[in-house]
């Protein structure tokens, strides 16, 4: 089993970490360089963790578990205005990121108000491309209950956050409701505020675990990190992508940040050592996010094999 971990340390000799992870059969999901510091998001075989830990200790780096690594989570606010951003929603997104998730902030076009709040089909589709979504609501119980129509058609698990305590029975479409994170006009700095961010991360983690166990019932033909590696090797144009993360991983595939029209055939032609192409074991379709390519790996029940 692959263990998701985050390496934080100096640039000096960090390539030793990358080499070791690749030699052990693990994957480098993300590499962030900030001046002389580097943050690596890694998937490492659990039995080889002591080897990596020894190297990291030698390099005076830090290795922390990143339970949400390899997933994409949408943080949805009713709009992008000052009423909903930046405080609570940015804090949630940042906290999810620290735990390894790739978080995307999404402000709805017409999500404001109680009676007039709406979500468009496009927004619903875009949120459905993620592995889970966090809906950040305000301080009034009645609004939170009535605004469940915004996530009623969303198929990924939705964690709803808001201020007051609400009986979960009143929110049947939410995977989990986390109270005490309503509208605030300051950054989360008190211990109680940080504790509730932990509770959101825990709720998202549990939603993702549910997704994982659903996927396990009918396993994917291959794992998303393996697809990522193969695409990275065989589509050299990816190097030219301006995105900080040219391939974003999902639990059931990935998003390749290249224009669909120009590159979908190249992505479909990516070949694995076993002789199959990506086009045969996955759906390669246009993503709702910009003009990117969305790869959805088919389950074993459809392809008949797993590798």
């Amino acid at each position: 089993m692959l263990e998701p971990v985050m390496f934080t340390g100096g640039i000096y000799k960090h390539d030793l970490v990358i080499e070791l992870v690749e030699d052990l059969g693990g994957y480098v999901l993300q590499k962030n360089v900030t001046q002389s510091e580097i943050i690596l998001l890694l998937l490492v075989p659990s039995e080889d963790m002591p080897t990596l830990e020894a190297l990291v200790k030698e390099l005076r780096g830090k290795l922390t578990r990143a339970p949400l690594a390899g997933t994409e989570v949408a943080v949805v606010t009713p709009t992008l205005a000052i009423h909903h951003l930046p405080h609570s929603a940015c804090d949630i997104a940042e906290y999810l990121r620290r735990n390894g998730a790739k978080s995307n902030m999404l402000g709805l076009a017409r999500g404001v108000g109680r009676e007039i709040a709406q979500i468009t089909e496009y927004e619903t589709d875009l949120i459905n491309e993620h592995d889970a979504a966090v809906f950040s609501y305000g301080n009034f119980a009645r609004c939170i209950i009535e605004k469940d129509r915004l996530y009623r058609n969303i198929t990924v698990p939705v964690v709803v956050t808001g201020g007051p305590e609400i009986d979960p029975q009143l929110l049947p479409y939410a995977y989990r409701y986390v109270s005490a994170v309503g509208r605030i006009a300051h950054r989360s700095r008190k211990a109680s505020e940080l504790e509730m961010l932990d509770r959101i991360v825990e709720a998202v983690g549990s939603a993702l675990d549910k997704n994982r166990s659903d996927i396990e019932k009918d396993p994917l033909t291959t794992s998303p990190p393996r697809v990522m590696d193969a695409v990275r090797e065989q589509v050299p144009e990816l190097e030219m992508s301006f995105s900080p993360l040219p391939i974003a991983l999902n639990l059931n595939g990935c998003r390749v940040k290249l224009p669909y029209e120009d590159f979908h055939q190249a992505v479909e032609r990516v070949t694995f050592d076993e002789g199959v192409t990506l086009g045969e074991i996955a759906q390669v379709k246009p993503s709702r996010m910009k003009s990117y390519i969305l790869v959805r790996i088919l389950p074993m029940s459809e392809t008949g094999f797993v590798f």
Partner: peptide, 22 residues
């Protein structure tokens, strides 16, 4: 005053003070 929304009332006090102070 926010009838039926005690939590919202308390929180709104904080929001108000934060914004007026800002």
């Amino acid at each position: 005053e926010a009838p039926g929304e005690e939590y919202g009332r308390r929180k709104y006090r904080e929001v108000l003070l934060d914004i007026l102070q800002d």
